[in-house]
Design a protein around this nucleic acid. Structure first.
Lengths: 383, 383
DNA sequence: TTCACCACTGAGAGCGCTCTCTCGCCCCTG
DNA sequence: CAGGGGCGAGAGAGCGCTCTCAGTGGTGAA
């Protein structure tokens, strides 16, 4: 990895600007950084000189002394063998067949896929609409502040160490961590290293950290109330992994509310938040409870899977069976029938997460705080 | 934005390690950077000292002299009023209704969505599965090299300037640019500024740049051949924006192949790559050609929209009408019936794009090159 | 008039690292 | 045994910036 010499042709420095403007380096620096006290005339002169020589400040030099990089790490943390034990599933439908184009007609095309991507946990993370929403939320908040997120992935011992090192080296001023594994050691490591971090969803093991989270239980309640209001009494649930707070709480909220209204028995199956697992779960539930008239899935992807199976089995939605999802992801609106779902304001949560980190950066000694977001029921056609 | 003083408690520097090891700063530096010539004993001593004092190199100091940040910018560039003139559509189905939870039961929850995100072009970009695939591909390639992508968004004059400034300031060594607007000035600006950049898809206006792209036309041909092989002759197409090369070429490849096989008339409608536009297009096509028996959509999202409309209209897929999509995105596999589609190896393309950038960084004077990827037909159930 | 006090600007010391240059040492050769 | 070559290590000069501290000139109060 050589040095990019090409246009290293001596970019202008503060010194150059100072010379051009006939002032000192310090004065130019003051102007560049929103001068607290530089006379208007000099300010003009310096501004002109900056424009004339085409000066841009060198981030590295600035960071060296200010100890601020102006970068925020966005860490997607997925430990292998995690709650998403989905590795065995969905590796392409069995009926898939790839017809390779035998002879590209003359074009100098190159088939350059060296390490053909196996469909790993990693790919699944980025394929989930959840990821895009997080990014959109973070970016929306950071952009006006002229900050940018550095995307990092932690999936094993090595990459976790790398993330920690990068942070310690000052590659970023702090980390926004989306951890989707209850046994993930990263949160603990970050705290231990004293690195500024804010989490999406509370860590599974209690830690004195800042985080944003959702009133999951309440979401489950909303779904239950909706089904109850429709007179559904033979309901079932497709839960998320019970090792995750989100998985347990959504289910609990649903079941508790049902129980409170006299529906004591709520059969459920555990999925892993993928569409395929939703399909499997729905099949199993129909097997067990052929008469069911309502289903609550702990996320939209699983709900969509349930929708497919119900259609395949000739059940009409919502006439025969009502289906309620969770998240209000893009999948909910594009499903047919459109999915009634419990909204999780992911973008707003992600934005808030970023805001919490900046607060922590500005006031290192402020006590850790958490922000809980409320859910809403988005009523569409499925239930 | 004050300084995070908390643990600024004098991180150990090279100097400290040198003292601890009883050697000079230079020697420690050599060891840290894969010493070309340091005696094994000394190496051991230094390594131990590094571990003992808990040293991590300071990136800023290093970057200041090496002029390498070890960061790659990943720029999503969307000019407003672009090909995706989707602003008018899909802003929530009209039948949506939000039931706000009136009284959260006591919990100290906070409804903190200050700038409630309007569904902007930005959100749409990140909601598209395409984005996740790009990220996954880039990350897959960069990660083993211990490099990280800095995510930037360029959507208007101001943010474009910001991206350019950041690059000039050395926030990143180069840029990977995904530009989804034919009129986007960013590619030109980057070239003009002499900044290292590689593009996903060729710039609409010819520029001497590196890029990866797809044999779009060939993909259209594959789709046509598939339909022809099934004896479909009343075919139609849902095209992408014709202002984009991808939009035109996919359509051209499809129509040309049809023509070559005696199907001279191929009605088509232009969509904007969203599911909604696919639905609208399908409705229009059915209106115009009630007898059609095959549809080629320029991407999977639009194909899924077509699927919905066909079902709604009582057409069986694939018995009555065959549907072929493009991209082989997650939407294709999760649709019902599963979507036959032309695969675009986005992950591999993104990885290659990153590789091209690193090559450019290593050899600034190497001539711009492009890499074209081939398509494949992925046969599933829809056609 | 004198002195304290601003308000503004300049000088200079580093931030932590890399890299060139130099030096010392050992080994090989004539 | 002297001289040359090569290798390993140290010294020191910055990279471009910020920030403290000192200095200058002007003003108002004593």
């Amino acid at each position: 990895m050589a040095i990019s010499d090409a246009q290293r042709t001596a970019l202008p420095t503060l010194e150059d600007v100072a010379r051009a403007a006939g002032v000192s380096r310090a004065t130019v620096s003051r102007v560049v950084n929103g001068a607290p006290s530089v006379s208007p005339e000099l300010q003009r002169v310096v501004q002109d000189a900056i424009a004339a020589v085409g000066y841009v400040p060198n981030r590295a030099a600035r960071q060296l002394i200010t100890r601020r990089s102006g970068v925020i790490a966005l860490v997607m943390s997925i430990a292998p063998g995690s709650a998403a034990d989905a590795s065995a599933l969905d590796a392409g439908a069995p009926d898939d067949a790839v017809l390779r184009d035998p002879a590209p007609d003359g074009a100098a095309s190159e088939d350059a896929s060296p390490d053909a991507s196996a469909d790993t946990a990693v790919d699944r993370v980025f394929a989930d609409p959840f990821f895009g929403r997080i990014v959109a939320g973070v970016l929306g908040f950071l952009r006006p502040l002229h900050l940018h997120p550095l995307l990092m992935l932690a999936e094993d011992e090595a990459s976790r160490a790398l993330v920690l090192d990068h942070l310690r080296q000052g590659a970023a001023d702090g980390a926004l961590v989306v951890s989707i594994d209850p046994a993930d050691p990263l949160p603990g490591l970050l705290v231990q290293a004293g690195l500024p971090a804010v989490f999406f969803a509370r860590p599974e093991r209690p830690l004195p950290v800042r985080y944003v989270d959702l009133a999951h239980q309440d979401g489950g309640r909303l779904a239950a109330e909706r089904l109850l209001a429709q007179g559904r009494r033979q309901v079932a649930a497709i839960a998320g992994p019970l090792s995750l707070h989100a998985g347990r709480a959504r289910l609990d909220g649903f079941c508790d509310t049902m129980a409170r209204h006299g529906v004591a028995y709520v059969p459920y199956t555990v999925g892993n938040f993928t569409q395929d697992s939703g399909e499997r779960a729905m099949r199993e539930l129909l097997e067990r409870e052929p008469e069911l008239d309502g289903v609550f899935a702990a996320n939209d992807l699983m709900a969509v899977g349930a929708l497919h199976v119900l259609r395949e089995r000739g059940r009409r939605v919502p006439q025969d069976v009502a289906v309620i999802g969770f998240d209000d992801s893009s999948a909910a609106a594009s499903a047919r029938p459109r999915l009634t779902t419990v909204r999780q304001p992911v973008e707003a949560m992600a934005a808030r997460m970023a805001q919490l980190l900046l607060e922590r950066l500005d006031e290192p000694d402020s006590p850790p705080r958490a922000v809980l977001f409320d859910t809403e029921l988005v009523v569409r056609a499925s239930g």
